[in-house]
Simulated scan of single mutants.
Amino acid sequence: MLIRRETPADRPAVHAVHREAFRREPGVIPVEAPLVDELRADGAVIGALSLVAVHDGEVVGHVCCSRARVGDDRTAAVGLGPLGVLPSHQARGVGSALMHTVLGAADALGLGLVVLLGSPAYYGRFGFVRASTLGVTPPDPKWEEHFQARTLTGHQSAHAGAFEYAPAFSRI
Rank of each mutant, 00 (worst) to 15 (best):
L86P: 00
G93Y: 03
V78E: 02
T101A: 15
G93F: 07
A76C: 13
G104M: 13
L86Q: 05
R92C: 10
H100I: 11
G81K: 00
L98W: 07
V102M: 11
L109Q: 11
A97N: 13
H100N: 15
V78S: 05
R92N: 07
T101E: 15
T101D: 15
S88H: 08
M99S: 06
A105E: 15
S88P: 04
S96C: 01
V102E: 11
H100S: 14
L80T: 12
L83S: 10
G95W: 11
T75H: 08
A105I: 02
G112F: 03
G84W: 10
G95L: 10
A77Q: 05
S88E: 13
T75N: 03
G84K: 01
P87T: 10
A106K: 09
L98S: 12
A105G: 05
L83K: 09
T75Q: 05
L98C: 13
L111Q: 03
T101H: 11
A91D: 13
G112V: 01
V78P: 03
L80N: 10
S96H: 07
V94F: 00
A77D: 06
L80V: 14
V94D: 01
A97R: 15
P82K: 07
G81I: 11
A108P: 00
G112N: 04
V94P: 00
A91N: 14
L109Y: 02
L98I: 12
L98A: 14
L109M: 14
A97P: 09
T101Q: 13
L80Y: 11
D107Y: 12
G110N: 08
A106F: 01
L80Q: 09
S88Y: 03
V102N: 07
V85L: 10
S88M: 06
G110Q: 04
L98G: 13
G84H: 05
S88W: 02
G112P: 06
R92M: 13
Q90T: 06
G95H: 12
G110V: 03
A108I: 01
A91K: 15
D107L: 10
A91P: 00
Q90L: 06
V102S: 09
R92W: 03
V78F: 01
G84F: 09
L86N: 01
A106C: 08
D107S: 15
V94Q: 02
M99W: 10
G112S: 05
G81P: 09
G79K: 01
G110W: 00
L98H: 14
L111K: 02
T75K: 05
G110D: 01
V85Q: 08
G112Y: 06
G79N: 02
L86E: 00
H89Q: 08
V78W: 02
H100Q: 15
A76G: 14
A76H: 07
D107N: 15
A77Y: 02
